[in-house]
C-alpha cells in the first residue's frame, strides 16, 4: 500500500491529464485543494459539476455556452452581416478579449491537416456555407492561423463560398504591434512587405 490513498491518487491522475500539468504539478494542485477542502475543493467540484450539466455547444456557431443558440448568436446588438470564421473556441475568446469585433462567429473545429488526417468532412464547413448564403450576411472574415494548414483551410472555404454573394476577407499578416523588424523572421517580414499599403 502506497502513501497516497486511491481516492487522492485518482484525483492526481485526472489532474495530470490536464493541459499544462504533469504528475508533479498535479500532486501539488491536489495537495493545495485538499488543504483547502472547504474553500477550494468543494467549490471547484461544485463548479465543475454545474459546468458539466449546463454547458452546451451552440448549434449555430459552435461556441460553448449555457444556452443554444449562444449569447453571441442571440445578441441583437451585434452585427449579423459580418461572420468571423475561427478555428477553435479559444480563438473566439481571444477576439472577444480584444473587443474590436462586434459581428457573429463561426467555429470550424480545426483546420485541414494531412498529418492529423483532418479533411474537409471533419470541419464545420457545410453549416458555414449555409449561414454565409443568408441574405443578411455580406462579409465573411477568415480569422485563421497564418500557417500552411490554416491558409489551406482558408482557400478551401473560399472555394466553397464561391457561389455565395459575400465579400471574403482575411486577417492581415505582418509586423505585430510592438514588434521590432530586427527580431522578425524572414517569413513575417516578407508577408508584411507584400501586404504594405499607402498612408
Amino acid at each position: 500500500m502506497g502513501p497516497i490513498s486511491s481516492e487522492l491518487q485518482r484525483v492526481i491522475d485526472l489532474l495530470a491529464k490536464l493541459p499544462g500539468l504533469g504528475p508533479r504539478s498535479a500532486r501539488r494542485v491536489a495537495l493545495h485543494l485538499i488543504k483547502r477542502k472547504d474553500t477550494a475543493l468543494t467549490s471547484l467540484a461544485a463548479a465543475l459539476e454545474d459546468a458539466a450539466a449546463a454547458i452546451v455547444t451552440c448549434e449555430t456557431c459552435g461556441n460553448l455556452d449555457t444556452q443554444d443558440p449562444c449569447r453571441i448568436c442571440t445578441d441583437t446588438r451585434r452585427d449579423a452581416s459580418t461572420l468571423c470564421v475561427v478555428e477553435e473556441v479559444g480563438d473566439l475568446w481571444a477576439l472577444e478579449r480584444a473587443a474590436v469585433f462586434k459581428g457573429s462567429y463561426h467555429i470550424l473545429g480545426g483546420t485541414l491537416s494531412a498529418l492529423e488526417g483532418v479533411g474537409p468532412q471533419n470541419l464545420n464547413i457545410g453549416p458555414l456555407v449555409a449561414r454565409a448564403s443568408a441574405p443578411v450576411v455580406t462579409e465573411v472574415i477568415l480569422a485563421l492561423d497564418a500557417t500552411v494548414d490554416g491558409q489551406a483551410t482558408a482557400h478551401l472555404i473560399m472555394d466553397r463560398l464561391d457561389g455565395a454573394d459575400v465579400k471574403i476577407t482575411h486577417l492581415a499578416h505582418g509586423v505585430p504591434v510592438g514588434g521590432e523588424l530586427d527580431y522578425l523572421d524572414e517569413g513575417t517580414l516578407a508577408a508584411a512587405l507584400n501586404a504594405r499599403h499607402t498612408y
Partner: peptide, 27 residues
C-alpha cells in the same frame, strides 16, 4: 530554418502543391 511557406500562403494553387508534395512524402 529557411521558410518557403510564406511565399505561397496567399496563393491557393502553390500552397496546394506544397501540401500535396509534403503529404505524399509523409504517406
Amino acid at each position: 530554418g529557411r521558410v518557403h511557406a510564406h511565399q505561397v500562403l496567399s496563393k491557393p494553387l502553390e500552397l496546394a502543391a506544397l501540401t500535396s508534395i509534403s503529404a505524399l512524402a509523409e504517406a
